[in-house]
Simulated scan of single mutants.
Amino acid sequence: MKKSIFLSLSLIVFFWASSSPARGQTYAEKLGYPKGKKVVIFHVDDAGMSYESNQGTMQSLDFGIATSCSIMMPCPWAANFIHQAKAHPEWDLGLHLVLTSEWKTYRWEPLAGKQLVPGLHDPDGAFWHTVEQVVQHASPEEVYIELKAQIERALRLGLKPTHLDSHMGTLFAHDKFLEKYIQVGVEYDIPVMFPGGNNVLLEESMTAPIIRKLKAEGKYHDGMPIPKPEILLKSQALGKQIWEMGLPVLDDLHTISGDWKPDHAHSHEELGQYKVDQFKRILEKMEPGLAMIIIHSIEYSDFFKRFSGSGDSRYGDLLAMTDPELKSYIEKEGIILTTWREVMERRKRLIQP
């Protein structure tokens, strides 16, 4: 595999029915997992974002069913997490590539500096708050420079990332950003999170917020068809391209556990149980193949509330990850838990002479 490969999305003709692993082998089967099995990476996002995020991530990996995590390198607590993780070489540590800084009062800045990536800086000098602002102001070349800066910082700190993924999905919001994401993965020989299979859970993840918005506006009725987002229409063809470049590909991806909230007032224990039930629901819903399920665990603290209203939900994720009921369910159903490290090792064995 040549590291100089440049993927041009404009040269790919996307057909929904083309080369679909869902109609033949799943990517899990291609990687050597048993046919018909559900293989899952429980993945903790946002390590490095805060002390609470670091503690929640470590507890999810140490005492829970989480098998992987990714670190936000521009954030203040990233180096702390990496230094602590050196005592746990078995942990599966990737990079949560950052192009946004979403909170009002707690911000982080691009690592490449304003001279090299001016379009990634908002008037405060931090990343822009929203994905839409990044798409409006930043060039693909600036994105590429910043992604490399984040990877290089991790390498300087002694971390060889097991994979790359995208904070707030920004790298999936623009075709040229997606090109650069895949390009750095190929250049550094690091797997990129990309769902190119049946995408049953990804479709739920992408359409549920649309339905919720329409319901709030009084514009939704049961059975109302929701158009498939563009990424779903082209994901299988692009997944095939990534696989042919020598990197592993997911069959599915779930991204919205942070949106799960009971309809009634709840205690933390009730929220944890609610999330356990929801994780069991999506594990039942997923089709055989390799899926990544994203969570956001924190150790609970009142301080976290000073910059984010998501603390209860994130603590609920930690409670679910460490709940014996969910672990027992996974074992009973014969679901295989894996890591990005193992997935890449399996992919490499397929291309070695």
Rank of each mutant, 00 (worst) to 15 (best):
Val135Tyr: 03
Met344Phe: 12
Tyr144Met: 11
Gly196Asp: 02
Gln133Thr: 04
Gln150Leu: 04
Ser301Val: 04
Ala320Glu: 00
Ile293Ala: 07
Ser205Lys: 09
Pro118Gly: 06
Phe279Gln: 04
Leu318Asp: 02
Met206Leu: 15
Met49Asn: 10
Phe42Glu: 07
Leu283His: 03
Gln55Pro: 07
His174Phe: 09
Phe81Ile: 08
Ser313Phe: 06
Arg314His: 01
Ser18Val: 13
Ile82Lys: 11
Ile210Leu: 11
Glu299Ile: 05
Met344Leu: 10
Asp252Tyr: 05
His88Ile: 07
Thr67Met: 08
Gly223Ser: 03
Ser301Lys: 03
Gly56Val: 03
Ser8Arg: 13
Ala85Met: 07
Glu90Asn: 09
Glu287Ile: 02
Ala112Phe: 03
Gln55Gly: 06
Ile231Pro: 05
Ser267Trp: 05
Met206Cys: 08
Glu179Ile: 04
Pro161Trp: 08
Pro191Gly: 04
Lys215Met: 12
Ala79Asn: 13
Lys37Leu: 06
Pro288Asp: 07
Tyr220Ile: 05
Ala78Tyr: 04
Pro118Trp: 06
Gly158Val: 04
Ser297Asp: 13
Leu319Asn: 00
Ser18Arg: 13
Val117Glu: 00
Phe194Leu: 12
Tyr274Pro: 01
Glu270Ala: 09
Tyr188Ser: 05
Ile182Tyr: 04
Pro209Thr: 11
Leu159Tyr: 02
Arg156Asn: 14
Ser328Gln: 13
Leu9Ser: 12
Ile210Glu: 13
Gly334Lys: 03
Ser310Leu: 15
Met321Ile: 06
Val343Met: 13
Ala138Gln: 02
Ala291Phe: 00
Ser50Glu: 11
Lys240Leu: 15
Leu202Arg: 02
Ser8Pro: 09
His296Thr: 05
Ser166Gln: 04
Asp317Val: 01
Lys176Gln: 08
Arg349Phe: 05
Phe279His: 11
Gln241Trp: 14
Ser310Glu: 15
Glu52Arg: 03
Leu95Ile: 14
Ser328Met: 07
Gly125Arg: 08
Ser60Pro: 09
Pro118Thr: 09
Ala126Gly: 05
